[in-house]
Design a protein around this nucleic acid. Structure first.
Lengths: 338, 338
DNA sequence: CTGTTAGCGCTTTCAT
DNA sequence: ATGAAAGCGCTAACAG
């Protein structure tokens, strides 16, 4: 017999009654143990276990005006990049008593806005949102929000609150430079799901090739459709039909790059001599592909970790000194480029 | 000037006062519009917009004893399989006003139990958990839970409540049969992260090869370490060192299979003649790999969709007639097997 | 160190 | 069709 109330619910008052103290004392024993005498604390702890009391976070949230839920809004749950960030988030909050409410904006500013509104109405402890391209409405909601906010994936000027990411523009420029340095003279850019980050990568590719006098619009193949390995196959086919002389391809991500690699093999291209391939993100498989794949390494786990740590610090009132963290990137050369 | 209270919060009472009715009437206008006269309803709606009133789900949850949050507990957020399920979940709940609290049990029964306890204490509207191998404690928590529960990924006897998945044992048996039917006589099994579902796949492989008189323990290579493409490379290397005569390999999942494919290419194996490769799940890339990859298709999106639909129906009091759905599987033959 | 008093914002009776 | 009263379980604020 663990409890008696008809609802099967043991409340703070029940514990208090059993111990013979007031409810607030039990509450204190739970949240600020130092403020309760040691013996009493023990008696309370004992009774709590005996009765099987479990605090009701909802009641607490009503009075404090805050839940212990951290909202995370990302544009895709199937994209490995976000999955890696999310894993890091879980690795950290596992130690805390925060929960994660995950929202999927499906790359839509409107859905993002709805989610922000929804999440905010639930009084989250903090919010993590992807990217820096929120709608005006979303942005002001977030600015006005009474909880800390971290933007991830990218860095930019004027963060809403805190920010951790890297420059997609710079990363793509560096990758383009890598290809050119390796001697490729007709580099192509292949991308799907042209979200703002992809746009900035394209911009990096464009400006670097222009600077080097190697820009050619026909070697830019993009689509709004979702990214996938199959899409890499398709886009490479397209590239070959409009610019068969392309000698290298910078892909917007590693899935596309894998598709390009498969299709290149199917067409008996010699990689990397006849065709150089560079991915983006350096997913785990890049290192072991055959041939192994050049890619731009991004620090996704660290990004999630830093983001959640900054957020938790801010929630606890200790604002981290650096509210804008640029994690950088690293072009990792492997056998798919010469 | 949208609101006046110092907290910046507009409450039901504010709206009621502005309209000149009681709070409960506003509450009704929101949740049971039919019970309020049309004209009044309009005035209320108007005032709500004017004041920018947003209902407080926390206060509602305190009195109703239920939030509108659906808890989802999966063992991994980076595994594509769960990501696909999750995407489906979002595709459906997007239309509703439910939110998703996502928990990551990291393949640990203990962490799963903690998450269930945590989630349950927050009064979820419903719960989705992966697999059928909960700890005894978790199971009884779930059985006693006052919200509907759906187990996904697998089917088994005695569901906690509802269930949608497929038989991993049968699926692996069918894949093994496929290899044998194709003429392979020394099939191997390669697996990482030996969770219960992997164990049952192994069991399926084992029993089918035994029945056909082709079982050989040395051709079973498994590890508890996490699965990855790189791990596929490693395990295939191990297989080749202990059983170099293996002529086919059934992989526990597609990532491993991709690793095996890469390593086989590196070693200049002729796939599929010299070596047949079969993956599991039929991720998107299987169809476009070079050579394209045989795999066991699983219906992950449908699984997530069915699960969340069943759950929502149950939450709304309309229990679906079929509380146990077996989605089956399909061996998809492609060029990586002859 | 411990208690009293008020409510948080909403919905459930039970009336009218 | 509308309302009054009561309270969900907890904690802030102020005593003592």
């Amino acid at each position: 017999m663990r409890n008696t109330r008809k609802s099967g619910k043991v409340t703070l008052a029940d514990v208090a009654r059993a111990v013979g103290v007031s409810a607030i004392t039990v509450s204190r024993a739970l949240r600020e143990p130092d403020k309760v005498s040691a013996t009493l604390r023990q008696r309370i702890d004992h009774t709590i276990r005996e009765l099987g009391y479990v605090p009701d976070p909802v009641a607490r949230a009503l009075v404090t005006g805050r839940t212990n839920i951290i909202g995370v809004i990302i544009p895709s749950v199937t994209n490995n990049v976000f999955a890696d960030v999310l894993r890091a988030v879980y690795d950290v909050i596992r130690m805390t008593d925060f929960g994660i409410q995950l929202g999927n904006s499906r790359y839509s500013l409107l859905e993002e806005e709805k989610l922000v509104r929804l999440f905010l109405s639930q009084k989250p402890a903090g919010l993590i949102v992807a990217g820096v391209d929120q709608s005006e409405a979303t942005r002001s909601l977030l600015v006005e929000a009474s909880c800390p906010v971290v933007q991830i994936m990218e860095v930019g000027d004027d963060p809403i609150d805190m920010m951790v990411g890297f420059s997609h523009y710079e990363a793509a420029r560096a990758a383009t430079r890598h290809l050119i340095d390796r001697g490729y003279r007709r580099p192509a850019f292949v991308a799907a799901r042209m979200d703002p980050r992809s746009q900035r990568r394209l911009q990096g590719f464009r400006e670097e090739t222009e600077v080097q006098g190697l820009f050619d619009e026909t070697r830019i193949i993009t689509t709004q459709r979702p990214s996938s390995v199959a899409m890499g196959v398709e886009l490479f086919g397209e590239l070959m039909s409009v610019a068969p002389d392309a000698d290298a391809v910078l892909c917007n991500n590693d899935d596309l790059a894998l598709g390009v690699l498969f299709e290149a093999q199917r067409r008996r291209f010699r990689v990397p001599d006849q065709l150089g391939i560079c991915g983006f993100n350096d997913l785990e498989f890049c290192a072991v592909a055959e041939p192994s794949m050049t890619s731009v390494r991004t620090f996704r786990h660290e990004m999630g970790e830093r983001a959640i740590r900054m957020l938790v610090s801010a929630i606890e009132g200790k604002r981290p000194e650096e509210a804008l963290v640029d994690l950088g990137y690293e072009v990792v050369h492997r056998r798919s480029t010469r």
